[in-house]
Structure formats: C-alpha cells, structure tokens
Design a protein around this nucleic acid. Structure first.
Length: 410
DNA sequence: TCTGGGGTCCTTCAGCTC
DNA sequence: TCTGGAGCTGAAGGACCC
C-alpha cells in the first residue's frame, strides 16, 4: 500500500507547518476498509457496503467502486447499475464500532484533546503533543502509521490553524495522505474551491448561491455581508462569510452533549395499515427508551416523523409534564401524535420516534402519583435491558411484537 | 436518480404574557 | 378595559452533516 507523506501535488507541503495544530483525521472508505480486513481476497476490487433491501443506500465503497461513479448515500439500485461487478456486503455496525474505538484510543494516546465526529473521523488539537512528536506533520505521520499497523486501515489527515480548514484539507489529502495548510496559505487554498466546499453549503444553498452568481469560495468572501445575510438568513450568512475568509473560532471539544435520541424505520414497501404503524411506533419507542436508559438520560419531548410515499415528511412533537425513559410512556405520546394526524390510510414509507430535551436521569425529579404501582413499566423495562445484555437484543419483547423478526411490516 | 438512519442547527410562526 | 408591540417559548419544517 502506498503511503504518501504530502498532500495533493497541486498544493505543495509547507516549509513551516507550526501553525497547523488542529488535525482532522478521516478514515479512508472506513466501512469498506474494515470489511476487507476479513476478506483480503477482495482487495483491489470494487466493493460496496450497503443495505441489501430494495430501498437500501450505499454506506461506503472502495476506491475501485468509486471509479465507476459509486458514492456514499447513493441508492443501491443505482450503485449496482453503475458497477454490476461490485461485491455487495451488508454492514456490520458492531464491528465498525470496535475498530473505531481502537482508532480513537490511538488518537487519545497522542493527545487528550480528541473530538470524535463520527465512527470514522475526529478532530485533534495537537499543540500540546509537538514537544514529544515533533512538527504537526510528524504527529500526523505517527498516528497514520499506528492506525495502519494496529488496525490495518489507512486514514488521511488535514492540518490547519482551525477545524474548518483542517477538514477541507483532509478531504483533499484522500486517500491515504496528509495535507497541511499553514495560516499564510489558508486563503490561497480555500478561495479557488467551489462554494460547496464550505461547511453548511448543501445542494439547496449551493443552488441559491449560484443564482447570485456565486460559484467559488472567493466569490462568497467578496460578496457584501448584508447580501449574504439576506439570501441565507443572518446566522448562515455570517457563518459562511467567516468560513470563506478561513475564520473558524470553534475549539476542539472533548465533551459533546447529546440533544436527542431517535430511531426510525423505512418499510420495505409502503404501508397504510394503522395497526402495523402502531406496532412499529411501539418497537421504535422501546428502542429509544432502552438507549436513553443505557446512556442515563430522560427526555421531556417526544416527536414522531412520518414520511409519505411521495417523500413529503411531517413531524409532530409534544412536551411532557415530566421527563421519562420508559418505552410505554414514549409510545403513549408517539401513538397519540400519530392518531392526531388523522391519516385516512395514507401510504407511508417511514415512521420515526425521537426523544428530545434530554437531562441526566439522576438529576430528574419524579412526582409520584397516588395510584402509581410500586413496580411499574420502568422496572419491567429495566429487567428487559438486563435480559438483553445477557442473552441478546430482542430476547424479551411485547407480545404484539413477537412476529417482528418474520416480517418487515411487523 | 429516487432517495437510510443517526443526528444538529436554524428559521418561521403561533400563542402567551407583560 | 382594550389594544398593540416586545419578548419568550414551543412546535414544525427545512437544510445539512456523516
């Protein structure tokens, strides 16, 4: 495997990288790379990791598959058409979590200032690690070598004075490379890039900016700020203007707090049966509640999401008088919110349940009702958690969900 | 082209209180 | 007592990210 020590040839390695103390590390084709660890015979071949169902999407693809135009988030049907010879593998999230934990441990051994963004990427503030490891480039090479030696996968590293530029740099270092953008080179690096390179510019905003004649980051930088604020709103306008000048004040944060926990399900075929939908709401509510209990949170707001066959989406939410981590409570609200929609056998492709306004369970107050049983749903569900931890998920479930494994539509 | 599942953040609007 | 405006909060929806 080739190990490049500099970034793209069109942006040469800097002589002085001392200002590049923020690193963004991104695993190369992470899920696919992990799958190849146990399937070495597939190395060098197009491999797609993604859902096998009729409505699945691509989670990750090897660079050989990407040469055919396969991209993450593309529908599996389209990916198969573009690359009919690709090997398709169903995702194994537990395995990815294990490898990810090993990678994050390597990062933490180099600096305590690690901010994981997802399973396969993280920001590192290495300003305190330079004395031991040398320059930021040397830190980057040390961690890349260790990830490869200890986990068997490659990663790319971007280094810069701030998070945004480091992230853009790592994308340009891919695959298996390093790109450092010191402070004096930030504008020369950013300004020729298309507006879509800016954090927060997706397809909609890109279209909006194009309509203003704005195509590159330099165009954004030179657009009067009031124009940008009017077009995109004050928050997004200011945000983009700052990024376009390479300004990003966000620190690498080792403590990120979750704001919501949710679960959703896309049916294999559209569903118009209220009973089936209610059973899914119950299953999703139980799943969300189990995750709340496992993380030690309780939630005050329950929201549901309903997506129709034509892809239009509704959300409804309700705030409870008291926070909960009990599946029955969440389902009670989710079911009521769904019923209140008054859908007359509308065809749905997705339902989801989300718990919001989280607070630590041990800090939550609980008003005991006069008629409250000594041992209620919470105790029953905690017992289910313990059984699941010992014998596996789904070993105990509501009678109404007993046939859940046999059919997608419950 | 035909769109998963997990999230966050922002904007808009309505209702409420002062 | 009525009314308009400011400020706050909750709900809903949209856009975005990985």
């Amino acid at each position: 495997m080739s190990r490049r020590t500099t970034g793209k040839l069109d942006f040469p390695a800097p002589r002085d990288d001392s200002t590049c103390t923020i690193l963004h590390v991104d695993m190369d084709a992470f899920y696919a790379s992990v799958e190849l660890l146990s399937r070495p015979m597939l190395r060098g071949k197009p491999v797609i990791v993604g859902g096998s169902g009729s409505r699945g999407v691509v989670l990750s693809a090897t660079y050989e598959a990407r040469e055919f135009g396969v991209r993450a988030a593309m529908s599996m049907g389209r990916a198969r058409r573009l690359c009919p010879d690709a090997q398709v593998i169903s995702p194994d999230h537990r395995r990815y979590s294990r490898v990810s934990a090993g990678v994050m441990e390597i990062f933490s051994s180099i600096t305590p200032n690690v901010e994981p963004l997802s399973l396969d990427e993280a920001f590192l503030d290495v300003s305190g690690a330079l004395r031991q490891y040398g320059s930021p480039t040397q830190v980057a090479e040390t961690l890349r070598a260790r990830v490869f030696d200890e986990q068997g996968i490659t990663c790319s590293v971007g280094g810069a004075p701030n998070k945004f530029v480091a992230k853009v740099a790592s994308a340009h270092a891919k695959p298996d490379g390093v790109l450092m953008i010191p402070a004096e080179s930030v504008l020369a690096f950013l300004h020729p890039l298309p507006v879509g390179a800016l954090w927060g510019v997706g397809p909609r905003t890109e279209e909006q900016l194009h309509s203003l004649g704005v195509r590159t980051v330099a165009d954004v930088a030179h657009l009067p700020r009031p124009v940008l604020r009017r077009a995109l709103g004050p928050a997004a306008g200011d945000h983009l203007a700052d990024l376009a000048w390479g300004r990003d004040q966000r620190q690498v944060s080792t403590t990120t707090r979750e704001r919501s926990v949710g679960s959703e399900h896309t049916f294999a075929g559209d569903v118009d049966d209220d009973e089936v939908i209610h059973r899914h709401l119950l299953k999703l509510s139980d799943h969300v509640a189990a995750r709340l209990r496992s993380a030690g949170w309780v939630a005050r707001t329950v929201s549901i999401k309903v997506r129709f066959a034509d892809f239009t989406t509704l959300t409804r939410s309700r705030t409870l008088p008291e926070a909960t981590d009990v599946g029955r409570d969440i389902y009670h609200q989710a079911g009521a919110l769904y019923d209140a929609l008054g859908l007359q056998r509308a065809r749905l492709r997705l339902v989801g349940v989300r718990a919001e306004k989280l607070t630590p369970a041990d800090a939550a107050t609980h008003q005991i009702a006069l008629d409250e049983p000594v041992a209620g749903w919470r105790e029953a569900e905690t017992a289910v958690d313990q059984a699941a931890a010992r014998f596996g998920d789904g070993v105990v479930r509501p009678a109404s969900l007993l046939d859940i494994g046999r059919s997608d539509d419950v």
